[in-house]
Design a protein around this nucleic acid. Structure first.
Lengths: 261, 261
DNA sequence: AGCACAATAGTGGCCTAGCCAGTCTGTTGC
DNA sequence: GCAACAGACTGGCTAGGCCACTATTGTGCT
Protein backbone atom coordinates (compact mmCIF):
# COMPACT_ATOMS: atom_id res chain seq x y z
CA UNK A 1 0.00 0.00 0.00
CA UNK A 2 2.84 2.36 0.80
CA UNK A 3 4.19 2.23 -2.72
CA UNK A 4 1.00 3.22 -4.41
CA UNK A 5 -0.04 5.96 -2.03
CA UNK A 6 3.28 7.73 -2.46
CA UNK A 7 2.61 8.16 -6.17
CA UNK A 8 -1.09 8.90 -5.96
CA UNK A 9 -2.36 12.34 -5.07
CA UNK A 10 -5.96 11.51 -4.35
CA UNK A 11 -7.26 14.83 -5.54
CA UNK A 12 -6.38 14.20 -9.15
CA UNK A 13 -8.11 10.88 -9.36
CA UNK A 14 -11.15 11.94 -7.44
CA UNK A 15 -12.45 13.77 -10.50
CA UNK A 16 -12.72 10.57 -12.47
CA UNK A 17 -15.49 8.64 -10.79
CA UNK A 18 -18.12 11.02 -12.05
CA UNK A 19 -18.16 8.62 -14.97
CA UNK A 20 -20.81 6.77 -13.00
CA UNK A 21 -23.18 9.66 -13.70
CA UNK A 22 -22.85 9.28 -17.47
CA UNK A 23 -24.62 6.18 -18.65
CA UNK A 24 -22.75 4.78 -21.61
CA UNK A 25 -25.10 5.98 -24.33
CA UNK A 26 -23.10 4.73 -27.26
CA UNK A 27 -19.91 5.34 -25.32
CA UNK A 28 -17.84 2.38 -24.41
CA UNK A 29 -16.76 2.39 -20.80
CA UNK A 30 -13.18 1.33 -21.48
CA UNK A 31 -12.64 4.03 -24.07
CA UNK A 32 -14.36 6.50 -21.82
CA UNK A 33 -11.90 5.80 -19.06
CA UNK A 34 -9.03 6.00 -21.51
CA UNK A 35 -10.04 9.42 -22.76
CA UNK A 36 -10.61 10.65 -19.22
CA UNK A 37 -7.11 9.68 -18.19
CA UNK A 38 -5.89 11.13 -21.47
CA UNK A 39 -7.51 14.39 -20.50
CA UNK A 40 -5.62 14.36 -17.21
CA UNK A 41 -2.38 13.79 -19.08
CA UNK A 42 -3.11 16.60 -21.50
CA UNK A 43 -3.90 19.01 -18.67
CA UNK A 44 -0.70 17.86 -17.03
CA UNK A 45 -2.55 16.94 -13.91
CA UNK A 46 -0.62 13.77 -14.60
CA UNK A 47 2.94 14.62 -15.43
CA UNK A 48 5.25 12.58 -17.58
CA UNK A 49 6.82 9.72 -15.71
CA UNK A 50 4.32 9.72 -12.90
CA UNK A 51 2.71 6.49 -11.91
CA UNK A 52 -0.88 5.65 -12.62
CA UNK A 53 -2.60 3.86 -9.74
CA UNK A 54 -2.76 0.13 -10.01
CA UNK A 55 -5.48 -1.43 -12.09
CA UNK A 56 -7.12 -2.77 -8.98
CA UNK A 57 -7.18 0.63 -7.31
CA UNK A 58 -8.53 2.33 -10.41
CA UNK A 59 -11.19 -0.32 -10.82
CA UNK A 60 -12.34 0.24 -7.27
CA UNK A 61 -12.17 4.00 -7.64
CA UNK A 62 -14.11 4.06 -10.89
CA UNK A 63 -16.51 1.39 -9.74
CA UNK A 64 -15.69 -0.86 -12.62
CA UNK A 65 -13.89 -4.11 -13.05
CA UNK A 66 -10.21 -4.68 -13.51
CA UNK A 67 -10.37 -5.99 -17.08
CA UNK A 68 -12.13 -2.83 -18.14
CA UNK A 69 -9.42 -0.68 -16.61
CA UNK A 70 -6.87 -2.94 -18.21
CA UNK A 71 -8.39 -2.34 -21.62
CA UNK A 72 -8.42 1.39 -21.03
CA UNK A 73 -4.73 1.31 -20.22
CA UNK A 74 -4.01 -0.79 -23.28
CA UNK A 75 -5.65 1.89 -25.36
CA UNK A 76 -3.45 4.53 -23.77
CA UNK A 77 -0.39 2.40 -24.48
CA UNK A 78 -1.30 2.15 -28.15
CA UNK A 79 -1.78 5.91 -28.26
CA UNK A 80 1.67 6.45 -26.84
CA UNK A 81 0.45 7.92 -23.58
CA UNK A 82 1.32 5.16 -21.14
CA UNK A 83 3.81 2.42 -20.64
CA UNK A 84 3.04 -0.44 -18.36
CA UNK A 85 5.75 -2.48 -16.72
CA UNK A 86 4.77 -5.82 -15.35
CA UNK A 87 5.36 -6.07 -11.66
CA UNK A 88 6.00 -2.37 -11.33
CA UNK A 89 3.08 -0.32 -12.55
CA UNK A 90 1.87 1.90 -15.34
CA UNK A 91 3.63 5.16 -16.10
CA UNK A 92 2.67 8.24 -18.04
CA UNK A 93 4.61 9.04 -21.20
CA UNK A 94 4.01 11.61 -23.93
CA UNK A 95 4.98 10.00 -27.17
CA UNK A 96 2.15 10.27 -29.67
CA UNK A 97 4.85 9.90 -32.32
CA UNK A 98 4.82 6.19 -31.59
CA UNK A 99 1.25 5.94 -32.74
CA UNK A 100 1.91 8.26 -35.65
CA UNK A 101 4.83 6.21 -36.91
CA UNK A 102 2.78 3.05 -36.57
CA UNK A 103 -0.01 4.61 -38.61
CA UNK A 104 2.25 5.63 -41.45
CA UNK A 105 3.89 2.24 -41.47
CA UNK A 106 0.50 0.60 -41.55
CA UNK A 107 -0.68 2.75 -44.42
CA UNK A 108 2.33 1.73 -46.44
CA UNK A 109 1.80 -1.94 -45.71
CA UNK A 110 -1.88 -1.77 -46.48
CA UNK A 111 -1.19 -0.21 -49.83
CA UNK A 112 2.22 -1.36 -50.85
CA UNK A 113 2.03 -0.30 -54.47
CA UNK A 114 2.04 3.31 -53.32
CA UNK A 115 5.65 3.45 -52.15
CA UNK A 116 6.33 6.09 -54.72
CA UNK A 117 3.70 8.31 -53.20
CA UNK A 118 5.25 7.96 -49.79
CA UNK A 119 8.66 8.77 -51.22
CA UNK A 120 7.11 11.76 -52.90
CA UNK A 121 5.73 12.94 -49.60
CA UNK A 122 9.13 12.54 -48.00
CA UNK A 123 10.57 14.68 -50.71
CA UNK A 124 7.95 17.34 -50.21
CA UNK A 125 8.58 17.40 -46.49
CA UNK A 126 12.33 17.50 -46.82
CA UNK A 127 12.20 20.08 -49.52
CA UNK A 128 9.93 22.43 -47.65
CA UNK A 129 11.61 21.62 -44.36
CA UNK A 130 15.12 22.45 -45.39
CA UNK A 131 13.98 25.91 -46.35
CA UNK A 132 12.90 26.67 -42.84
CA UNK A 133 15.78 24.70 -41.45
CA UNK A 134 18.31 26.91 -43.17
CA UNK A 135 16.55 29.96 -41.84
CA UNK A 136 16.45 28.73 -38.26
CA UNK A 137 19.46 26.48 -37.84
CA UNK A 138 21.91 27.33 -35.09
CA UNK A 139 25.57 26.31 -35.02
CA UNK A 140 24.81 23.10 -33.11
CA UNK A 141 22.28 22.06 -35.73
CA UNK A 142 24.83 22.40 -38.48
CA UNK A 143 27.52 20.57 -36.58
CA UNK A 144 25.05 17.81 -35.72
CA UNK A 145 24.25 17.32 -39.37
CA UNK A 146 27.94 17.20 -40.17
CA UNK A 147 28.57 14.62 -37.48
CA UNK A 148 25.71 12.46 -38.77
CA UNK A 149 27.04 12.55 -42.31
CA UNK A 150 30.50 11.53 -41.11
CA UNK A 151 28.99 8.61 -39.26
CA UNK A 152 27.15 7.70 -42.41
CA UNK A 153 30.34 7.56 -44.40
CA UNK A 154 31.95 5.35 -41.79
CA UNK A 155 29.10 2.88 -41.66
CA UNK A 156 28.87 2.22 -45.37
CA UNK A 157 28.82 -1.54 -45.71
CA UNK A 158 27.03 -2.18 -42.44
CA UNK A 159 23.35 -2.24 -43.26
CA UNK A 160 21.96 -1.65 -39.78
CA UNK A 161 24.44 1.08 -38.91
CA UNK A 162 23.89 2.77 -42.22
CA UNK A 163 20.15 2.80 -41.78
CA UNK A 164 20.35 4.54 -38.44
CA UNK A 165 23.04 6.94 -39.67
CA UNK A 166 20.97 7.85 -42.70
CA UNK A 167 17.96 8.42 -40.52
CA UNK A 168 19.98 10.56 -38.15
CA UNK A 169 21.36 12.71 -40.92
CA UNK A 170 18.03 13.52 -42.44
CA UNK A 171 16.49 13.89 -39.01
CA UNK A 172 19.21 16.36 -38.05
CA UNK A 173 18.36 18.47 -41.06
CA UNK A 174 14.64 18.44 -40.46
CA UNK A 175 15.06 18.97 -36.74
CA UNK A 176 16.76 22.25 -37.49
CA UNK A 177 13.41 23.55 -38.65
CA UNK A 178 12.35 23.51 -34.97
CA UNK A 179 8.95 22.33 -36.07
CA UNK A 180 8.04 19.31 -33.93
CA UNK A 181 5.21 18.17 -36.20
CA UNK A 182 7.37 18.26 -39.27
CA UNK A 183 10.05 16.32 -37.41
CA UNK A 184 7.71 13.63 -36.17
CA UNK A 185 5.98 13.12 -39.47
CA UNK A 186 9.17 13.22 -41.44
CA UNK A 187 10.79 10.63 -39.23
CA UNK A 188 7.75 8.40 -39.45
CA UNK A 189 7.74 8.58 -43.22
CA UNK A 190 11.48 8.10 -43.46
CA UNK A 191 11.66 5.05 -41.23
CA UNK A 192 8.62 3.52 -42.88
CA UNK A 193 10.37 3.80 -46.22
CA UNK A 194 13.69 2.51 -44.94
CA UNK A 195 12.02 -0.37 -43.15
CA UNK A 196 10.14 -1.20 -46.30
CA UNK A 197 13.35 -1.33 -48.31
CA UNK A 198 15.01 -3.37 -45.62
CA UNK A 199 12.19 -5.86 -45.48
CA UNK A 200 12.40 -6.23 -49.24
CA UNK A 201 16.07 -7.14 -49.09
CA UNK A 202 15.82 -9.75 -46.41
CA UNK A 203 12.74 -11.26 -48.02
CA UNK A 204 14.44 -11.65 -51.37
CA UNK A 205 17.86 -12.35 -49.87
CA UNK A 206 19.38 -9.50 -51.82
CA UNK A 207 22.04 -7.05 -50.79
CA UNK A 208 21.39 -3.37 -50.32
CA UNK A 209 22.08 -1.20 -53.29
CA UNK A 210 24.94 0.56 -51.57
CA UNK A 211 26.94 -2.62 -51.29
CA UNK A 212 27.17 -2.84 -55.01
CA UNK A 213 30.44 -1.79 -56.67
CA UNK A 214 29.76 1.92 -57.00
CA UNK A 215 27.08 2.03 -54.32
CA UNK A 216 28.85 3.88 -51.52
CA UNK A 217 30.28 6.58 -53.77
CA UNK A 218 27.02 7.33 -55.53
CA UNK A 219 25.15 7.33 -52.26
CA UNK A 220 27.49 9.74 -50.55
CA UNK A 221 27.53 11.84 -53.69
CA UNK A 222 23.83 12.29 -53.23
CA UNK A 223 24.05 13.25 -49.58
CA UNK A 224 27.11 15.46 -49.39
CA UNK A 225 25.72 18.27 -51.53
CA UNK A 226 22.80 18.56 -49.15
CA UNK A 227 25.08 19.14 -46.21
CA UNK A 228 27.23 21.54 -48.22
CA UNK A 229 24.29 23.69 -49.15
CA UNK A 230 22.94 23.49 -45.63
CA UNK A 231 26.23 24.66 -44.14
CA UNK A 232 26.42 27.52 -46.61
CA UNK A 233 22.78 28.35 -45.94
CA UNK A 234 22.20 28.16 -49.66
CA UNK A 235 18.49 27.63 -50.08
CA UNK A 236 18.46 27.25 -53.85
CA UNK A 237 21.36 24.82 -53.72
CA UNK A 238 19.71 22.82 -51.01
CA UNK A 239 16.55 22.49 -53.06
CA UNK A 240 18.48 21.08 -55.97
CA UNK A 241 20.50 18.74 -53.75
CA UNK A 242 17.38 17.42 -52.07
CA UNK A 243 15.79 16.92 -55.46
CA UNK A 244 18.79 14.90 -56.65
CA UNK A 245 18.57 12.80 -53.53
CA UNK A 246 14.94 12.14 -54.16
CA UNK A 247 15.56 11.11 -57.74
CA UNK A 248 18.26 8.68 -56.69
CA UNK A 249 16.02 7.18 -54.01
CA UNK A 250 13.13 6.83 -56.42
CA UNK A 251 15.47 4.97 -58.73
CA UNK A 252 16.44 2.62 -55.91
CA UNK A 253 12.84 1.93 -55.08
CA UNK A 254 12.02 1.26 -58.71
CA UNK A 255 14.94 -1.15 -58.96
CA UNK A 256 13.84 -2.88 -55.79
CA UNK A 257 10.30 -3.32 -57.05
CA UNK A 258 11.39 -4.48 -60.46
CA UNK A 259 14.85 -6.06 -60.09
CA UNK A 260 16.44 -6.47 -63.47
CA UNK A 261 20.09 -5.54 -63.18
CA UNK B 1 -23.12 -21.58 -35.59
CA UNK B 2 -24.48 -21.14 -39.09
CA UNK B 3 -23.83 -17.42 -39.06
CA UNK B 4 -20.22 -17.66 -38.09
CA UNK B 5 -19.27 -20.54 -40.35
CA UNK B 6 -20.56 -18.74 -43.39
CA UNK B 7 -18.08 -15.92 -42.84
CA UNK B 8 -15.18 -18.04 -41.66
CA UNK B 9 -12.97 -19.87 -44.10
CA UNK B 10 -11.19 -22.18 -41.71
CA UNK B 11 -8.01 -22.22 -43.74
CA UNK B 12 -7.17 -18.60 -43.05
CA UNK B 13 -7.50 -18.88 -39.33
CA UNK B 14 -5.72 -22.17 -39.04
CA UNK B 15 -2.41 -20.39 -39.52
CA UNK B 16 -2.84 -18.45 -36.32
CA UNK B 17 -2.65 -21.01 -33.58
CA UNK B 18 1.03 -21.52 -34.16
CA UNK B 19 1.29 -18.78 -31.60
CA UNK B 20 1.34 -21.53 -29.02
CA UNK B 21 4.80 -22.45 -30.25
CA UNK B 22 6.21 -19.02 -29.51
CA UNK B 23 6.52 -18.51 -25.79
CA UNK B 24 5.91 -14.85 -25.06
CA UNK B 25 9.50 -13.80 -24.46
CA UNK B 26 8.89 -10.14 -23.94
CA UNK B 27 5.99 -10.31 -26.35
CA UNK B 28 2.59 -9.69 -24.97
CA UNK B 29 0.07 -12.27 -26.06
CA UNK B 30 -2.70 -9.78 -26.77
CA UNK B 31 -0.49 -7.60 -28.96
CA UNK B 32 0.87 -10.69 -30.60
CA UNK B 33 -2.59 -11.76 -31.61
CA UNK B 34 -3.36 -8.25 -32.79
CA UNK B 35 -0.34 -8.10 -35.07
CA UNK B 36 -1.02 -11.59 -36.40
CA UNK B 37 -4.52 -10.63 -37.42
CA UNK B 38 -3.11 -7.39 -38.76
CA UNK B 39 -0.79 -9.41 -40.93
CA UNK B 40 -3.75 -11.30 -42.33
CA UNK B 41 -5.47 -8.03 -43.10
CA UNK B 42 -2.37 -6.66 -44.80
CA UNK B 43 -1.98 -9.76 -46.94
CA UNK B 44 -5.66 -9.44 -47.76
CA UNK B 45 -6.29 -12.94 -46.55
CA UNK B 46 -8.91 -11.02 -44.66
CA UNK B 47 -10.65 -8.63 -46.99
CA UNK B 48 -12.28 -5.39 -46.03
CA UNK B 49 -15.75 -5.90 -44.63
CA UNK B 50 -15.29 -9.54 -43.85
CA UNK B 51 -16.21 -10.78 -40.44
CA UNK B 52 -13.69 -11.83 -37.85
CA UNK B 53 -14.73 -14.95 -35.92
CA UNK B 54 -16.35 -14.33 -32.59
CA UNK B 55 -14.16 -13.69 -29.59
CA UNK B 56 -15.15 -17.03 -28.15
CA UNK B 57 -14.21 -18.90 -31.28
CA UNK B 58 -10.90 -17.11 -31.59
CA UNK B 59 -10.11 -17.76 -27.97
CA UNK B 60 -10.73 -21.43 -28.44
CA UNK B 61 -8.79 -21.52 -31.68
CA UNK B 62 -5.79 -19.67 -30.27
CA UNK B 63 -5.94 -21.50 -26.99
CA UNK B 64 -6.25 -18.32 -25.00
CA UNK B 65 -8.93 -16.68 -22.98
CA UNK B 66 -11.65 -14.43 -24.24
CA UNK B 67 -10.52 -11.21 -22.54
CA UNK B 68 -7.14 -11.58 -24.21
CA UNK B 69 -8.76 -11.84 -27.61
CA UNK B 70 -10.96 -8.93 -26.67
CA UNK B 71 -7.92 -6.79 -25.90
CA UNK B 72 -6.33 -7.79 -29.19
CA UNK B 73 -9.41 -6.67 -31.06
CA UNK B 74 -9.50 -3.40 -29.13
CA UNK B 75 -5.97 -2.76 -30.31
CA UNK B 76 -7.02 -3.38 -33.90
CA UNK B 77 -9.93 -1.01 -33.45
CA UNK B 78 -7.62 1.74 -32.21
CA UNK B 79 -5.35 1.14 -35.19
CA UNK B 80 -8.27 1.54 -37.57
CA UNK B 81 -8.24 -2.04 -38.75
CA UNK B 82 -11.40 -3.37 -37.17
CA UNK B 83 -14.81 -2.23 -36.11
CA UNK B 84 -16.80 -4.22 -33.62
CA UNK B 85 -20.55 -4.01 -33.47
CA UNK B 86 -22.20 -5.23 -30.34
CA UNK B 87 -24.51 -8.11 -30.97
CA UNK B 88 -23.30 -8.57 -34.50
CA UNK B 89 -19.59 -9.21 -34.68
CA UNK B 90 -16.25 -7.68 -35.55
CA UNK B 91 -15.52 -6.57 -39.08
CA UNK B 92 -12.35 -5.75 -40.97
CA UNK B 93 -11.84 -2.18 -42.10
CA UNK B 94 -8.82 -0.42 -43.61
CA UNK B 95 -8.74 3.05 -42.18
CA UNK B 96 -5.35 3.75 -40.65
CA UNK B 97 -6.16 7.42 -41.23
CA UNK B 98 -8.34 7.23 -38.15
CA UNK B 99 -5.36 6.47 -36.00
CA UNK B 100 -3.26 9.01 -37.85
CA UNK B 101 -5.75 11.79 -37.32
CA UNK B 102 -6.00 10.88 -33.66
CA UNK B 103 -2.25 11.06 -33.32
CA UNK B 104 -1.99 14.50 -34.85
CA UNK B 105 -4.84 15.76 -32.73
CA UNK B 106 -3.18 14.33 -29.64
CA UNK B 107 0.13 15.96 -30.47
CA UNK B 108 -1.56 19.30 -30.75
CA UNK B 109 -3.34 18.86 -27.45
CA UNK B 110 -0.24 17.68 -25.67
CA UNK B 111 1.65 20.71 -26.82
CA UNK B 112 -0.89 23.41 -27.32
CA UNK B 113 1.54 26.32 -27.52
CA UNK B 114 2.80 24.92 -30.81
CA UNK B 115 -0.30 25.65 -32.87
CA UNK B 116 1.77 27.89 -35.06
CA UNK B 117 4.01 25.01 -35.93
CA UNK B 118 1.07 22.90 -36.94
CA UNK B 119 -0.27 25.73 -39.06
CA UNK B 120 3.14 26.04 -40.60
CA UNK B 121 3.11 22.37 -41.48
CA UNK B 122 -0.30 22.74 -43.04
CA UNK B 123 1.04 25.54 -45.16
CA UNK B 124 4.02 23.46 -46.24
CA UNK B 125 1.78 20.58 -47.20
CA UNK B 126 -0.71 22.72 -49.05
CA UNK B 127 1.98 24.67 -50.78
CA UNK B 128 3.87 21.63 -51.98
CA UNK B 129 0.68 19.75 -52.62
CA UNK B 130 -0.94 22.28 -54.89
CA UNK B 131 2.06 22.10 -57.15
CA UNK B 132 1.51 18.46 -57.84
CA UNK B 133 -2.22 18.94 -57.77
CA UNK B 134 -2.10 21.41 -60.63
CA UNK B 135 0.04 19.02 -62.61
CA UNK B 136 -2.24 16.05 -62.06
CA UNK B 137 -5.72 17.46 -61.68
CA UNK B 138 -8.37 16.21 -64.03
CA UNK B 139 -11.58 18.09 -64.95
CA UNK B 140 -13.55 16.46 -62.15
CA UNK B 141 -10.97 17.57 -59.60
CA UNK B 142 -11.31 21.16 -60.69
CA UNK B 143 -15.07 21.10 -60.72
CA UNK B 144 -15.10 19.45 -57.30
CA UNK B 145 -12.98 22.26 -55.91
CA UNK B 146 -15.31 24.79 -57.48
CA UNK B 147 -18.35 23.11 -55.99
CA UNK B 148 -16.74 23.06 -52.55
CA UNK B 149 -15.93 26.74 -52.69
CA UNK B 150 -19.50 27.55 -53.69
CA UNK B 151 -20.77 25.57 -50.75
CA UNK B 152 -18.37 27.49 -48.57
CA UNK B 153 -19.77 30.80 -49.68
CA UNK B 154 -23.29 29.60 -48.99
CA UNK B 155 -22.53 28.40 -45.50
CA UNK B 156 -20.91 31.55 -44.22
CA UNK B 157 -22.59 32.26 -40.92
CA UNK B 158 -23.19 28.65 -40.02
CA UNK B 159 -20.18 27.51 -38.05
CA UNK B 160 -20.58 23.79 -38.44
CA UNK B 161 -21.43 23.93 -42.12
CA UNK B 162 -18.58 26.29 -42.77
CA UNK B 163 -16.09 24.07 -41.05
CA UNK B 164 -16.98 21.08 -43.18
CA UNK B 165 -17.14 23.16 -46.35
CA UNK B 166 -13.74 24.64 -45.63
CA UNK B 167 -12.32 21.20 -45.02
CA UNK B 168 -13.87 19.92 -48.21
CA UNK B 169 -12.46 22.72 -50.29
CA UNK B 170 -8.91 22.27 -49.12
CA UNK B 171 -9.29 18.51 -49.23
CA UNK B 172 -10.48 18.73 -52.83
CA UNK B 173 -7.36 20.64 -53.75
CA UNK B 174 -5.00 18.28 -52.00
CA UNK B 175 -6.84 15.24 -53.26
CA UNK B 176 -6.06 16.33 -56.78
CA UNK B 177 -2.43 15.48 -56.09
CA UNK B 178 -3.49 11.82 -56.13
CA UNK B 179 -1.11 11.20 -53.27
CA UNK B 180 -3.00 9.28 -50.57
CA UNK B 181 -0.42 9.97 -47.86
CA UNK B 182 -0.46 13.66 -48.50
CA UNK B 183 -4.23 13.63 -48.44
CA UNK B 184 -4.49 11.73 -45.17
CA UNK B 185 -1.89 13.76 -43.37
CA UNK B 186 -3.18 17.04 -44.69
CA UNK B 187 -6.71 16.25 -43.62
CA UNK B 188 -5.54 15.21 -40.19
CA UNK B 189 -3.60 18.42 -39.74
CA UNK B 190 -6.41 20.53 -41.10
CA UNK B 191 -9.14 19.10 -38.93
CA UNK B 192 -6.90 19.18 -35.87
CA UNK B 193 -6.42 22.89 -36.43
CA UNK B 194 -10.06 23.59 -37.14
CA UNK B 195 -11.17 21.58 -34.14
CA UNK B 196 -8.69 23.45 -32.01
CA UNK B 197 -10.09 26.77 -33.14
CA UNK B 198 -13.61 25.54 -32.62
CA UNK B 199 -12.88 24.32 -29.12
CA UNK B 200 -11.40 27.69 -28.32
CA UNK B 201 -14.56 29.52 -29.35
CA UNK B 202 -16.96 27.41 -27.40
CA UNK B 203 -14.72 27.45 -24.34
CA UNK B 204 -14.51 31.20 -24.32
CA UNK B 205 -18.02 31.70 -25.60
CA UNK B 206 -16.77 33.80 -28.49
CA UNK B 207 -17.94 33.92 -32.03
CA UNK B 208 -15.89 32.75 -34.97
CA UNK B 209 -13.85 35.38 -36.70
CA UNK B 210 -15.89 35.09 -39.88
CA UNK B 211 -19.04 36.20 -38.16
CA UNK B 212 -17.52 39.56 -37.48
CA UNK B 213 -18.54 42.48 -39.70
CA UNK B 214 -16.04 42.02 -42.50
CA UNK B 215 -15.37 38.36 -41.73
CA UNK B 216 -17.07 36.65 -44.65
CA UNK B 217 -15.67 38.93 -47.28
CA UNK B 218 -12.10 38.74 -46.05
CA UNK B 219 -12.35 35.00 -45.69
CA UNK B 220 -13.67 34.41 -49.16
CA UNK B 221 -11.11 36.86 -50.50
CA UNK B 222 -8.46 34.58 -49.14
CA UNK B 223 -9.91 31.44 -50.67
CA UNK B 224 -11.10 32.52 -54.08
CA UNK B 225 -7.65 33.34 -55.49
CA UNK B 226 -6.57 29.81 -54.69
CA UNK B 227 -9.35 28.34 -56.78
CA UNK B 228 -8.73 30.85 -59.56
CA UNK B 229 -5.08 29.91 -59.83
CA UNK B 230 -5.95 26.25 -59.57
CA UNK B 231 -8.44 26.47 -62.40
CA UNK B 232 -5.95 28.35 -64.56
CA UNK B 233 -3.25 25.85 -63.60
CA UNK B 234 -1.12 28.79 -62.57
CA UNK B 235 1.50 27.36 -60.23
CA UNK B 236 3.14 30.61 -59.27
CA UNK B 237 -0.20 32.27 -58.62
CA UNK B 238 -1.34 29.34 -56.53
CA UNK B 239 1.78 29.57 -54.40
CA UNK B 240 1.09 33.19 -53.64
CA UNK B 241 -2.59 32.58 -52.99
CA UNK B 242 -1.82 29.75 -50.60
CA UNK B 243 0.71 31.90 -48.85
CA UNK B 244 -1.88 34.67 -48.39
CA UNK B 245 -4.29 32.14 -46.98
CA UNK B 246 -1.69 30.96 -44.54
CA UNK B 247 -0.91 34.46 -43.38
CA UNK B 248 -4.57 35.20 -42.79
CA UNK B 249 -5.03 31.97 -40.84
CA UNK B 250 -1.95 32.64 -38.75
CA UNK B 251 -3.43 36.00 -37.92
CA UNK B 252 -6.66 34.37 -36.83
CA UNK B 253 -4.82 31.94 -34.61
CA UNK B 254 -2.81 34.74 -33.06
CA UNK B 255 -5.99 36.69 -32.37
CA UNK B 256 -7.59 33.64 -30.86
CA UNK B 257 -4.65 33.01 -28.56
CA UNK B 258 -4.40 36.65 -27.52
CA UNK B 259 -7.84 38.17 -27.88
CA UNK B 260 -7.59 41.94 -27.79
CA UNK B 261 -9.97 43.33 -30.36
C1' DA C 1 -48.73 -16.05 -50.86
C1' DG C 2 -46.95 -12.40 -48.32
C1' DC C 3 -46.04 -9.90 -44.29
C1' DA C 4 -45.56 -8.26 -39.49
C1' DC C 5 -43.82 -10.22 -35.52
C1' DA C 6 -42.10 -12.77 -31.65
C1' DA C 7 -38.80 -16.41 -30.15
C1' DT C 8 -33.99 -17.66 -30.25
C1' DA C 9 -29.43 -18.22 -30.83
C1' DG C 10 -25.21 -15.67 -31.26
C1' DT C 11 -22.51 -11.52 -30.35
C1' DG C 12 -19.59 -8.02 -27.95
C1' DG C 13 -19.28 -5.46 -23.42
C1' DC C 14 -18.73 -6.06 -18.92
C1' DC C 15 -18.18 -8.38 -14.27
C1' DT C 16 -16.23 -11.47 -10.44
C1' DA C 17 -12.51 -14.35 -8.86
C1' DG C 18 -8.22 -16.05 -9.03
C1' DC C 19 -3.36 -17.71 -10.61
C1' DC C 20 1.17 -16.53 -12.20
C1' DA C 21 5.60 -14.34 -13.08
C1' DG C 22 7.63 -10.48 -12.56
C1' DT C 23 9.47 -6.32 -9.35
C1' DC C 24 10.26 -3.61 -5.63
C1' DT C 25 10.96 -2.95 -0.58
C1' DG C 26 12.08 -3.64 3.92
C1' DT C 27 14.13 -6.66 6.89
C1' DT C 28 17.06 -10.14 8.49
C1' DG C 29 21.32 -12.40 9.09
C1' DC C 30 25.99 -12.22 8.42
C1' DG D 1 27.85 -2.20 6.21
C1' DC D 2 25.87 -5.09 3.01
C1' DA D 3 24.13 -9.11 0.72
C1' DA D 4 20.42 -12.26 0.52
C1' DC D 5 15.85 -13.17 1.32
C1' DA D 6 10.71 -12.87 2.14
C1' DG D 7 6.62 -10.80 1.30
C1' DA D 8 3.56 -7.54 -0.65
C1' DC D 9 2.23 -5.53 -4.84
C1' DT D 10 2.13 -5.21 -9.85
C1' DG D 11 0.37 -6.22 -14.63
C1' DG D 12 -0.71 -10.32 -17.79
C1' DC D 13 -3.61 -13.89 -18.33
C1' DT D 14 -7.31 -17.42 -17.42
C1' DA D 15 -12.01 -19.08 -16.19
C1' DG D 16 -16.87 -18.73 -16.31
C1' DG D 17 -20.97 -16.09 -16.32
C1' DC D 18 -24.48 -12.10 -16.93
C1' DC D 19 -26.43 -8.59 -19.81
C1' DA D 20 -28.05 -5.76 -23.77
C1' DC D 21 -28.14 -5.91 -28.30
C1' DT D 22 -28.72 -7.95 -33.11
C1' DA D 23 -29.81 -10.93 -36.77
C1' DT D 24 -32.14 -14.80 -38.24
C1' DT D 25 -35.65 -17.83 -38.45
C1' DG D 26 -39.86 -19.62 -37.91
C1' DT D 27 -44.61 -18.61 -36.82
C1' DG D 28 -49.23 -16.95 -37.07
C1' DC D 29 -52.10 -13.68 -39.02
C1' DT D 30 -54.10 -11.23 -42.96
Amino acid sequence: MARSKAAMPETVWASLDERAAKPPEGHLVAEDIATQIQELIIREDLKEGSRIPSERELAQLLKTSRPTVSQAIRILVVRGLAESRRGSGCYVIRRPEISLAASVDLMLNLNVESVKHLAELRFMLESAGINIAIARAGPNDISAAGRALRKMRQSVGNTAAWMTADTQFHAALVRSSKNPYLVSIYESVHTALIDYEHRGWVERGEIPAWLEPDGPDSLMAVHEPILDAFERRDIAGAQIAVERHHEAMTQHLADAADPDD
